[in-house]
Structure formats: structure tokens, C-alpha cells
Amino acid sequence: MKKKVFFKFPPKLVTKPVTYLLVKDYDLIINIFSARINEDEAGILGVELDGLEENIEAALKYLKGVGIIVDDFDKRVRIDHTKCQNCGACTSVCPTGSLSSDKDFKVSLDEGKCIVCRQCVDACPFGAIEIGE
């Protein structure tokens, strides 16, 4: 099975070689789709885990045990169309092409491609992009 999750590392755990352990000890294929370190030096890693269901569960249990916060991939990017002016300031910062201008140059969001990396949120001058549940 495949599962998308966010790992949140407190500052003291930022240096822990998590992906290595997941590959070696739990036989998982790891695809990192976003990696950020916040101003408070906590790290946020967005990954897709691919492997046996019991291995994924065991891996997540281990990570929670050492103090890494595991967040399900339940956040969504939302465009407030009452605020959006269809300029396209967000499309060029989108790493997956989920935000794009359609044939009429209106901005559209393909949620299937979105990895909720949040790059677009502070790129919008109209405050039209928000992260929701």
C-alpha cells in the first residue's frame, strides 16, 4: 500500500536519519515530496511511504515512539474564488503543476497532483489561497 504523511521533527530530532531507518528496518520505498525547516528549527518532511501495510504501521509506531509527530495527509489547499483574480502569480511556484492556468488563463487547482507543500500560499497577493482540512 501507499500512504502520504507529514513527519514533524522537534529541533533535537532534526538530525535523525529517519528515511534511512525506514528503508533499512521496514523495507519501505520513500518518496519525499516536501522538506522544510521552520524558523523555530523544527523540520517538516512530506513523504509517500510504499510497502506492506504492517510495515508502514510498525514504522509509524516507531517514529511516534521517538518523538516525531506524524500527521496524516489531511490538509487541502483551497482557492477562495471570491478573492482570486485569476492572475497566475501562484502557478509558477507550484512544483507539481497542480496549480495552472487553463485555456482561458483562469487559475485551476488539480487536487490529485497537490502535495500541500504550501509554496503557493504566500505567493498570492490577494490572500486567496488557504490551507484547510
Binding site: 492572475c87 497566475g88 502557478t91 492556468s101 488563463f105 505567493a123
Partner: peptide
């Protein structure tokens, strides 16, 4: 620019507009 990407040298660069064409 409106095609969504331009070539700068050999690099493919995604484009975005600050001015709204639909408006």
C-alpha cells in the same frame, strides 16, 4: 510566456503572471 513555460538557455522555466488576463 502564456504557454506556461519558457526556455532560458537550456533550462525549462515555469511562468506565472502578475497581471490577470481573464480580468
Amino acid at each position: 510566456l502564456r504557454s506556461g513555460e519558457i526556455m532560458i538557455g537550456k533550462k525549462k522555466v515555469p511562468t506565472g503572471s502578475m497581471s490577470s488576463y481573464p480580468k
